[in-house]
Design a protein around this nucleic acid. Structure first.
Lengths: 215, 215
DNA sequence: CGGCTGACTTATCAGTGATAAGTGATCAGT
DNA sequence: ACTGATCACTTATCACTGATAAGTCAGCCG
């Protein structure tokens, strides 16, 4: 498979930390194409143009690549959330925040799967899982803070922003993860389902709010 | 089940189809103890007391064991649902149905994980995934039928039972799967979270219903 | 008896994630 | 300019995985 003749023209594409990013890019692309479980370290290495053991100079294990991608995904979601205006305290703002979450999951299914639907393999899972948890906590905190604004504005049925955030997160995650995991399920029109689901969550979380009437 | 009680020092513990059930039992127990991904076919075989290749006389692949367990899990959930009274058309009945789902997931996390959070490995995934889908469809249909009763009684905000069922299922699955996948997350008190989440879903799905006032 | 069947065995496969040991380019220090 | 250390990389190899092939042996039927 290896043509020895073209050994020399190998050009050091990325040195040091750049190579790490290269590997992560290739891994994410392969995971997207063929599924997280189906991609081997040899394939990832080949995609980058290096040998398989070379991966272990940059990552301690295959799972660590996954965890890094997980953190990446959470960061991407957090950035999308951060792009939202902060002070919105009406139903429309609530729906928009939810929509960002759902869209992120549906548009980047592989990233979402890696972030939320990853099963730790074993062994040193403790340490890696802790990193996943920490990454998720940051994103969740942003989420909670935004809900707290609605709570402070007296717009919610419950006064516990943490409780509300966890419940809402569950509601959003449920839809995204089911849509991703059971793509072949006879779903109703997805746009309709998403819209109605968000209305459901809004109805369940927000108090009746004549200021922002439902259309 | 009707296992040959003759425990001769040698092999014939279970004959024919009984051996298949034995394998499934052992697999489920091991998956529970150490996680689905961490258990090997050799361990399963050892737990049953046969050699590893002997498994392949009963199952075409390791994944097929998983799919069988998946169908089993769906059947267990369906049985729990079937144990509920059929004609209930109030908020309490709605909550009870949801509670059955949540309790099933939390009490049998391994079964739930196998049923809903399984990632197909590759290759002939198509055929196996189809079986998973079919098993899930049956259970979903029961779910939908019960919601349809509430729709017929005019108790719901939307008239589309299928849409409501998919949305509600998402809401329930989201909570269960997150609780299972992120056990170390700083959840609020779980009983409180579950109770409030169900109220949220009820508020979002059921129309205001003076007959069954919220406490 | 002799042959058949089927659940089982041992032996073995290719492929996996991971480790060990060695190669060669780069570069600071003398 | 010569070191010698460092670093990213290589090849060779590990233990182990899921899966297959071929042979073994009990029990049954003619």
């Amino acid at each position: 498979m290896i043509a020895g003749t073209e050994r020399s023209p190998r050009k050091p594409k990325g040195r040091g930390a750049e190579r790490r990013e290269e590997i992560l890019d290739a891994a994410q692309r392969l995971f997207t194409e063929r599924g997280v479980m189906a991609v081997t370290t040899r394939e990832i290495a080949a995609a980058v143009g290096i040998s398989q053991p070379a991966l272990y100079a940059h990552f301690h294990s295959r799972d660590e690549i996954l965890v890094d991608l997980c953190e990446r995904s959470f960061r991407a979601l957090a950035e999308r959330m951060a792009a939202l205006p902060l002070g919105v305290r009406d139903r429309a703002g609530f729906l928009e925040m939810c929509r960002v979450y759902i869209d992120f999951g549906l548009e980047q299914p592989d990233a979402y799967r890696v972030a939320f639907m990853l099963e730790a393999k074993a062994s040193e899972a403790a340490q890696l899982e802790a990193r996943i948890l920490a990454a998720g906590l940051d994103t969740f905190e942003d989420f909670r803070a935004r809900l707290a604004q609605l709570v402070d504005a007296g717009m919610t049925r419950s006064g516990d922003a943490r409780l509300l955030a966890q419940s809402l997160w569950s509601g959003l995650h449920g839809l995204v993860s089911l849509l991703l995991a059971r793509r072949e399920f006879p779903w109703v029109d997805i746009e309709t389902l998403v819209a109605r689901h968000l209305e459901l969550l809004a109805d369940g979380i927000l108090a009746t709010d004549p200021v922002t009437p439902r259309r």
